[in-house]
Design a protein around this nucleic acid. Structure first.
Lengths: 110, 110
DNA sequence: TGTCTAAATAACAGGTTAGTTATATGGCTA
DNA sequence: TAGCCATATAACTAACCTGTTATTTAGACA
């Protein structure tokens, strides 16, 4: 096989873990598994393709707009969700590859 | 089958994640995979059975004694390592069951 | 071009984390 | 039982996190 998976350094693992070590952000990731089930219908941006929009997520979190946006930014910075701006709104979806890479590494290395 | 794994609440998952979201504590868990390979020989407490003693871990971390002990306490409180006091020393080993339960849950739920 | 609005940034407060040094605790051991 | 030594606790500081309100930015569109 000779799979040469160059492993990210421990510092990046720590960053990913800090990103998910938050009830709010775990909740966001959970909601984004099925945006149509958890958020109202939206005009632009197919929920299945692009995810849910910033406002819906912020509202559902029940925090202020800047607080919600910052939680989303933490997840984006950790590469666990992907942002897509469309016509003035920003949609967020899970980065399933990165999430799987993280859980795999934890299963193997922790 | 009917496996009724009563799932711990999200708050506890957050606590476990916070416990491992630290380079220092990830390092400790890594060392404890093979105490004999990472720490000097110790008089009491079989490394394979009880793990490595507080002092060795603190020394290897390179922080003060209270700082090191507190990192260990965080991992103990999260049930990820197990403390065994023997003749005045305290030995720490990995709680493989709990660690596996955590990585399993993350693989399934994240 | 000018306005509207979603999202980002700034500035601040309160709580938590991680480090320090100093001190207390408590079980061995002589 | 007296002292010692490993560990825990206390007290403090600096940095970080999460929330707030106010303001800025920038794309859409009329």
């Amino acid at each position: 096989m000779a799979m040469t998976l160059t492993q990210q350094p421990t510092a990046e693992l720590e960053a990913s873990l800090k990103a998910i070590a938050s009830e709010r952000r775990l909740q966001i990731l959970e909601w984004l598994k099925d945006p149509k089930a958890h958020f109202p219908p939206q005009e632009h941006g197919d929920p299945d393709e692009h995810g849910a929009c910033n406002q819906f997520i912020v509202d559902k979190l029940g925090v202020s707009q800047p607080a919600g946006s910052r939680h989303l930014k933490v997840l984006v910075d950790a590469d666990l969700i992907i942002a897509t701006p469309i016509k003035g709104w920003t949609y967020y979806r899970r980065n399933e590859e990165a999430i799987h890479a993280l859980t795999s590494r934890l299963s193997n290395d922790l």
